[in-house]
Design a protein around this nucleic acid. Sequence first.
DNA 1: GGATGTGAATGTCTTCACAGCT
DNA 2: AGCTGTGAAGACATTCACATCC
Lengths: 206, 206
Amino acid sequence: MRRVSESAVRRLSLYLRFLEEFEAKGIETVSSEALAARGGTTSAQVRKDLSFFGSFGKRGLGYPVRDLARRLRDILGLKRSYRVVIVGAGKIGSALAQYRGFGQRGFHIAAVYDSDPAKVGLEWDGQVVRDVSHLERDLEREPMDIAIVSTPAGAAQEVTDRLVRAGIKAILNFAPVHLRVPPGVIVRNVNMALELEALSYALRNR
Amino acid sequence: MRRVSESAVRRLSLYLRFLEEFEAKGIETVSSEALAARGGTTSAQVRKDLSFFGSFGKRGLGYPVRDLARRLRDILGLKRSYRVVIVGAGKIGSALAQYRGFGQRGFHIAAVYDSDPAKVGLEWDGQVVRDVSHLERDLEREPMDIAIVSTPAGAAQEVTDRLVRAGIKAILNFAPVHLRVPPGVIVRNVNMALELEALSYALRNR
DNA sequence: GGATGTGAATGTCTTCACAGCT
DNA sequence: AGCTGTGAAGACATTCACATCC
């Protein structure tokens, strides 16, 4: 399989979402044009993105909604479920822990950690906040697939190092720092202050 | 000024953050190499990014930390402050409303709206949740610079249309839908489920 | 007829490599 | 000598346009 770009993968996720909506409406076939309109891109882009992985459509007709959705779930690795650990039970961590959107996609928040004794033991939505000092011990017994780092900036690298040592291969980082990880560990960053600054830049340079 | 890429702007924000750290440590000069190491990029990239806006460094020496930080703040439009309105007081909206990181950068959450009568009137951190039906009326009296849309997917487009009609020019969208806006209005999307799916893809195709 | 699949062309971003200052 | 600033090269991503197939 050819290497496919970051942004192409994001678009695939979007397409999948739209396909699921179409499926719910009972629509059986969809054109690249229709997917594009929904996702703010072009039909050529849609076709190119999909063509990386095979040819799923019928010429003159379009793509079969149900099949394509299934294929995309497969491509994106969404046929299985994932156990997700959140480290950092601050504002963002707690919002994420309680966010419904993840579960629907097979991402199950299986544990939440914090270092603050005032937070440890609190229960959120059936989820007891655990003491981060037990992180390694717990991960050995209950392996996790993905970690979300939502600690303050200062703690993020140390937490990351511990997660990596405990075998975590994928990290979603909300702390506003660049995490150093060994090869083979994937990090994606979400930095909300950065997004606002990009808006600020755009507003200023309209 | 030449058009500069999305990703370059993001990097500028990162550089600014590092420069501020260096400044706090009393470091006066920094090389592109040092900035690159900190931000997970290359020195050539740093120099190229900065060169879009001028030449701020001294050859053989590096960049003056304080001056460059000031210039970046200027370039990014961070010398002023921004009034931010949040629409949607769910999990994410409330986390954002209470998140400290924004204020430090001059983004002040000036109002929070929701349509749920059970949430309207609640006070968070000095912020009373207002009824979204008053959105237009309020925005006329208290203009806002940036809107954060953190409603459920179904409400996002309608809320966006109302915000745009009320004169909002920049939107940070957390709802998992593509927002249609007229030209001149800037939208940036943060989709956390999408990020997890990108990790899922990466894990599967390691 | 109509929409896909895809090489080729175009456009954009990143990396290279070195001349030019300090 | 050291590090910036920057054209040129290279890599990558998007768009075009059309042959291909249902």
